[in-house]
Design a protein around this nucleic acid. Structure first.
Lengths: 222, 222
DNA sequence: TCTAAACCAGATTGACCATTCTGGATTTGC
DNA sequence: GCAAATCCAGAATGGTCAATCTGGTTTAGA
């Protein structure tokens, strides 16, 4: 991130324009979003925009950073002190993300749009990978707790499980971007979570249960 | 697909140009690839290109269709009569795809580049989803065989498992596009396959085995 | 009130690119 | 060998867009 973009992020009057621009980039992509679009959506004029951010790329970097931080907070808050247990917390934040993606039919700002920009600027790709790693590690933390309460499928380590969750969410994003429906994507995520959980270890679970027919898993209502 | 693109696909002299253009679009994306690039890579001149395909978009559609067909054949061939068992066949084709993606650092032509074009042309997005469904159904076929030989984790249906495989591959593609390494992605895919397989049902497996310590799974050599 | 700085909107620049045009070269059929 | 069709390469066209410029307007400070 450029120093200018960093300054932009800390200026409270720029929060609203950044959010407006984020919405545009997220829905339309980087190339498809013109400065004129941003002028229209933010209410700022070109002069002020260039003054505050420096240019289109720098504006996008500020947007991306804002999205990064927001997303990280979302995950860390929900996963560091999960009320209903770690698996429930993972489900909660993930379903929130899926709803965001299907609302926009636009996948993940970080991975899809940022990858577009990554073609110009390799630093963006690296930033994306490092952020994904941060989120993966938040997932891993939650899965470690899950392991401790016996909620994790013993066939897998928290680390591997977290990587699977990330990949699954990226896949869900790719499908959303091509127009897949919310219900379908929630079901897909649900299968993933089921395999990661103790329920994925079907026989092992059955052996512990008093009534094996209760094996089916509570589905999301969507 | 336009009639013109369909004709282009059936003309054997256009196979080489289509493959050259595919390589460009795959690596660089649609917007970043100029007609001049294509002229350079294919050896065809602009006049001939426009004559054969009609325009840039039509050229891309021909490329996409070619990729679709090739990919479908790859999956159907490997999965319809799997020599070393269905799970091995799934592993084989998937690892092939991962190697392709990491070679180019460019994810999946179908999902990543086509989604870019899908912004102009909704028909492209729909085509992408329908093709993914075809590949998913090939995976489902293989997983149904796996279920019959007791190689599938009983916690999951072949249908769900196939959807998970697709999502996982799309996620792997997103990671590859941002520069993730081959080894990391193969490991990730491996965890996915392990959960889908009988090994994902750790306790159940343990109960059937004579020596439970043989629980670890053969890893890919990469 | 006055002055200097900040701000605005529209016009302009400069670059890129898909597509078409054109006039000459090459091939093809007879 | 010749005429007609096909092909070629570079120039030209038209459009888009980021970024800058300009000349006038508003605001803020003393």
């Amino acid at each position: 991130m450029t120093p200018q973009a960093e300054i932009a992020l800390s200026d409270p009057t720029l929060i609203a324009p950044i959010n407006a621009a984020k919405e545009l980039f997220w829905r339309q992509g980087y190339d498809e979003t013109s400065i004129e679009d941003v002028v229209g959506a933010t209410g700022m004029n070109r002069y002020a925009l260039y003054n505050a951010f420096g240019g289109k790329l720098e504006l996008f970097l500020a947007v991306l950073e804002n999205y990064f931080v927001e997303r990280k907070n979302l995950f860390l808050t929900a996963l560091s002190d999960p009320q209903g247990g770690p698996m429930a917390a993972i489900r909660e934040v993930s379903e929130y993300c899926i709803i965001e993606m299907t609302d926009r039919g636009a996948g993940c700002l970080m991975c899809d749009v940022a990858a577009e920009v990554g073609r110009y600027d390799k630093a963006v790709s690296e930033r994306v990978l490092s952020y994904l790693e941060e989120i993966r590690s938040a997932d891993e933390m939650a899965l470690t707790q899950a392991e401790a309460c016996g909620e994790l499928n013993p066939a897998i380590s928290p680390k591997e499980g977290a990587a699977l969750l990330i990949a699954n969410m990226l896949g869900v994003g790719a499908l959303a971007r091509n127009g897949a429906g919310r219900r379908e994507l929630l079901t897909l995520f649900n299968s993933c979570l089921r395999l990661l959980g103790r329920q994925g270890d079907a026989q092992g679970l059955q052996r512990k249960r008093r009534n094996p027919q209760a094996r089916t898993v509570k589905q999301v209502s969507n």
